[in-house]
Amino acid sequence: MKIGLIYPQTELRGDPAAARTIALAAEELGFDYLLAYDHVVGASHDREPKLTGPYTEHHPFHDPLVMFSHVAALTKRLEFATGVLILPQRQTALVARQAADVDLLSGGRLTLGVGTGWNYVEYDVLGQDFTTRGKRMDEQIALLRQLWTEALVSFDGAFDQIDRAALNPRPRRQIPILLGGFAEVALRRAARVGDGFIFADGAADAFGQLTRLRELLSEGGRGSEPFELRCNMLRPKAAQDVGETARRWAEAGGTHAAISTMGLGHTSAEQHLDYAAEALAAVSACR
């Protein structure tokens, strides 16, 4: 099972040096991948309808694909995962181009985790319809794969139309597309069209969701196919508890588990890394 580190950008005040520091240290410590969340803008919650998510205009976020392109040049083997990119608020062909370039320039180290998000203000800012986000993402996933593999693409969808155009250069492989979310609809979408799923244990019960996802994969005839099962370990705080969660996830058949250093009062990249190293040692001890 691969072990990742969640980039704690909401607690690093947008410090550009922190991205370099944490990526280089993560590779040196032996982490397999770096995962980053995504929000284009934050918004005040003083509005109707109410926003339901945890972030406001006060929480800093780097664009994960831009950040990954930067730190990929500084690292050699560290893999990168968006966890998750809010796909339906973005132009599909532009995401295809950006993801292809990150994957090409990093030597095939990108996994694209995608989801529908919760912040309708972001959709408004980016000129997209929040109410059709699920249907649009279904179409986008199919189009991304087509753009990454075909020399000339024609596509006539409900949301995107392409008349004999192409990405050039294309990635040298089919970039894995993973789904993420907390609701049944996210699990169903992953079982239909995903290469894997990113669970958020703490925001939801990852172990319970894993059982349900396996049922859906079996019902869809995909029970024996390769499928990534990634767990963002948000619930455990003590390093030993992180190790125990990782052990349980591996025993359950999980393929990846990511350590979170957030919510513990750390105020510097160095403090986050000290805890990350301690938690990684606990994971290794529990294997």
Rank of each mutant, 00 (worst) to 15 (best):
T56N: 13
V66D: 03
Y37N: 02
A36W: 03
V84P: 00
L65H: 08
P60D: 14
H39I: 14
L51I: 02
L65D: 01
H45G: 11
L87C: 14
T82Q: 12
E48V: 03
E79P: 04
Y37F: 12
F61T: 07
Q91A: 15
F68H: 00
E48A: 09
L85E: 05
L78Y: 06
L74Y: 06
L87F: 04
M67P: 01
H59Q: 07
F68E: 00
D46H: 05
K50Q: 12
E57V: 08
M67R: 00
P60G: 14
T75H: 01
S69W: 04
V71P: 01
H39W: 06
I86T: 03
H45T: 03
A72H: 08
P54W: 06
H58G: 11
T52L: 10
R77W: 09
V41N: 10
L35P: 08
L35F: 11
H58S: 13
Y55E: 07
L74G: 12
G83H: 02
H62A: 14
V41W: 10
S44E: 06
I86Q: 02
G83E: 02
L87K: 00
L87A: 13
P49C: 12
T52I: 14
L35G: 13
S69C: 07
T52F: 12
K50F: 10
R90W: 05
K76N: 11
V71H: 00
K76E: 13
A72S: 15
L85R: 10
H39P: 09
E48L: 05
T75Y: 01
K76I: 08
A36S: 06
P49G: 10
E57A: 13
P54V: 10
S44W: 09
A43R: 09
E57I: 05
V41C: 12
R90V: 11
G42Y: 00
T75E: 03
H70G: 15
H59C: 05
M67E: 07
H58D: 15
Q89Y: 08
L74N: 09
P88Y: 04
F68W: 01
P64V: 01
P60T: 10
L51K: 02
P88L: 10
L74I: 05
P88M: 11
A72T: 06
V41Y: 10
E79A: 11
D46Y: 07
P88H: 06
G42C: 03
T92V: 14
A73K: 12
V71M: 09
E48M: 04
T82F: 06
V40R: 08
A43K: 07
V66Y: 07
F68T: 02
H62Q: 12
T52Q: 14
P64T: 04
L51Y: 01
R47K: 02
R47P: 04
F80G: 03
A81E: 04
L87M: 07
T75M: 02
D63P: 02
L65V: 08
P88V: 04
R47Y: 04
K50C: 11
A81K: 13
T52H: 14
P60H: 15
H58E: 12
A72R: 09
F68Q: 00
D63N: 10
L87R: 00
T56G: 12
H39E: 13
H59S: 08
L85S: 09
E57F: 07
L35R: 02
I86F: 03
E57Y: 07
G83I: 08
A81M: 11
L74S: 09
G53H: 08
L51Q: 05
A81S: 13
I86D: 00
L65Q: 01
I86A: 08
A72Y: 05
V41R: 08
H39F: 06
Q89E: 15
D63Q: 06
H59G: 06
